[in-house]
Nucleic acid binder design. Structure first.
Length: 553
RNA sequence: GCUCCGUUGGUGUAGUCCGGCCAAUCAUUUCGGCCUUUCGAGCCGAUGACCUGGGUUCAAAUCCCAGACGGAGCACCA
């Protein structure tokens, strides 16, 4: 129609014609379609099948990165000179608490790239603010544990607070290159000058003075706020965010790590991180958009030193649906402090420790996070996506059980079997059956109690009619279920059941499970039929109940 | 106010650099069917999107301009 506009008026007829053809093609089996295509267009078929063999990646290619797997000798010869031989990345957390779900994006993406490119990554704790972002000593290990839960092991681990002398050395060098100056302006004063593109009087100090004053900073001779070391950039740069930024400042509060507690002169993130990224030979920096100006700021330092800046990928913020609690380390810490949450692994907390306790595998989170890609716009991650991944991972190996939430007790009449024996897993009969005594009354969920005179099928047991406040066994054949006359529900015996407290993101639910649940080991997963998957946490003898954590439908 | 960046179904994503094979991918969600002593499982199917307005072009999700909306930075936080 592009070539022949006259055809346009007949455009409406196309779906009718094409639809018929497509319908006929769709009726063919895969083999028939493949055969037909081989006759009509063998080269197209080859192309399609070649594409199928290519690896499907959730994530886009990294800039200037060579895929090791696809590198044939021929393409190796044509390899772009700009391409990196080794992909080296870093996960650079601030150790101020265990990780929330959003934090998983960094290792998920970096770890996935590492596997894809056969690369390298380290964890580097950027703990250079002992005061406002004061590190939590327990967080270092907590974060490494969270990383292990997600299924990744860093190739190396560093702490910036171990590396102060290195930063000082580079600061001295930068001063000698004329790239930095000590400044005693107040933040307010400097901000005003900066916003109008005016240099402050300290900018033109001679190198000797700057060196002396910087050594005094290192020796702790100034108090907090008295003196900073600024990187000399371009005071008239059109982006005010880049003008002469602070590289080092004084902090009176000692660092919580004993090894670093004597230092008073601390580098800012942009200086520390910029130097470390070069020294660790990082090829690709992957981080949030809140740091999108960092590369431009650090570029000035790299220019002074004659270094090449790594490739950078920025992404937007992640939000997770399904939680009432704000996903922020400090907010969660406060709620725990106030007793609103039981701890970092409370099922209501949007933390990795919580998901772990609910029996969700790290792999399910990693896949969902990698699926978000690396777009710079803010994204919402649906928990259902993590749940779907986890279901795929555990469904086959997870046995089925009955659990009745807030059940009503109903007496049984008639002559049903004394014991019900539903399979542990409907797809795996070889695993055997459960043994559920029926006794003289059963628990049903309030919503499952039938109307008077209506029938209901107790799964694994048989059909009952609800009459005069009791369930009367009818001996109906399963056909009544097949024909859609009778609904199937789960149930539990009233007397020999196990009291269960199920902890969920929306609060605790109590109820009764079939007796076998009392014998399950801690950490085992179950699927409570028609309720969802849960992890056995513990059998609490004092409360005489089994505590389980709800995972997902 | 100054400076960056972004906008594809309910959600996420592919495609945008290099316009045509996009009648737009995949996943999830929702809905429907099938199967199964009957699963919130599995299988099959359906619904559903290119922010708006101009422009360039035979042809625009893709290029250009303007606007709307959203995000980020302008800290002695990370």
């Amino acid at each position: 129609m592009g070539d022949n506009p006259d055809f346009r008026e007949h455009g409406d007829e196309i779906p009718g014609i094409a639809g018929g053809v497509i319908g006929r093609v769709n009726d063919l089996s895969y083999e028939e379609k493949r055969e037909r295509l081989e006759d009509l267009a063998p080269e197209e078929l080859a192309e399609i099948e070649a594409e199928d063999e290519e690896d499907e990646h959730d994530l886009p290619d990294l800039p200037n990165a060579a895929e090791p797997s696809s590198a044939s000798p021929d393409s190796q010869a044509h390899q772009d000179a700009d391409e990196y031989d080794e992909i080296r990345m870093r996960v650079a957390p601030n150790p101020n608490g265990p990780w929330h779900v959003g934090h998983a994006r960094m290792p998920a993406v970096i770890g996935t790239y590492k596997e894809r490119y056969d690369g390298w990554f380290c964890v580097r704790f950027d703990d250079t603010d002992p005061e406002t972002k004061r590190p939590d000593l327990e967080a270092y290990d907590a974060i490494l544990e969270d990383l292990d839960y997600l299924g990744f092991e860093p190739d190396a681990t560093y702490k910036a607070s171990d590396r102060l002398e290195t930063y000082y050395e580079h600061a001295r060098e930068l001063i000698d290159l004329g790239g930095a100056y000590t400044c005693s302006c107040s933040g307010e004063e400097f901000s005003e000058l900066k916003n109008s593109g005016e240099p402050c009087p300290h900018r033109e100090k001679d190198v000797e003075t700057v060196r002396e004053e910087f050594e005094a900073m290192v020796d702790g001779e100034y108090d907090s706020g008295e003196m900073v070391l600024r990187v000399k950039t371009d005071i008239e740069h059109k982006n005010p965010a880049l003008r002469d930024w602070v590289g080092f400042r004084m902090i009176d509060t000692p660092h919580p790590r004993e090894e670093a507690s004597e230092y008073r002169c601390w580098p800012m993130l942009d200086f520390q991180s910029g130097v470390d990224d070069h020294l660790l030979e990082i090829s690709h920096i992957i981080r949030g958009i809140d740091l999108q100006d960092s590369a431009k700021r650090q570029q000035f330092v790299y220019d002074y030193f004659g270094w090449d800046y790594p490739e950078v990928v920025h992404w937007g913020h992640v939000q997770i649906d399904a939680y009432d609690v704000k996903m922020s380390t400090s907010t969660i810490a406060e709620l725990i402090e106030d007793g609103e949450l039981d701890g970092w692994d409370d099922p209501r907390a949007p933390t990795l420790k919580s998901l772990r306790r609910r029996g969700i595998r790290g792999e399910a989170i990693v896949e969902a996070m990698a699926g978000l890609g690396t777009s710079t716009s803010d994204v919402d991650l649906a928990m259902s996506s993590i749940y779907a991944n986890n279901r795929d991972l555990i469904d086959e190996e997870t046995d089925r059980r009955f659990f009745v939430r807030e059940g009503n007790q109903l007496p049984i009449s008639g002559d049903p079997p004394a014991e019900a024996n539903p399979p542990l897993h409907p797809n795996h009969e070889e695993r055997g059956v459960r043994e559920i005594p029926v006794s003289d009354s059963v628990m049903l969920e309030p919503e499952d109690v039938p109307e008077a005179d209506e029938r209901i099928w107790l799964k694994g047991l048989g059909c009952f009619r609800y009459a005069e406040g009791a369930l009367e066994y009818t001996d109906d054949d399963i056909d009544v279920v097949r024909e859609g006359e009778v609904d199937v529900v789960h149930w539990a015996p009233a007397s020999e059941s196990v009291a269960v407290r199920m902890r969920t993101p929306d609060g605790d639910v109590r109820g009764h499970a079939e007796p076998g649940v009392g014998d399950l080991a801690s950490d085992e997963m179950v699927q409570f039929e028609r309720v969802g998957f849960a992890r056995i946490d513990r059998h609490d003898d004092e409360e005489e109940e089994t505590v389980v954590y709800y995972a997902h439908p």
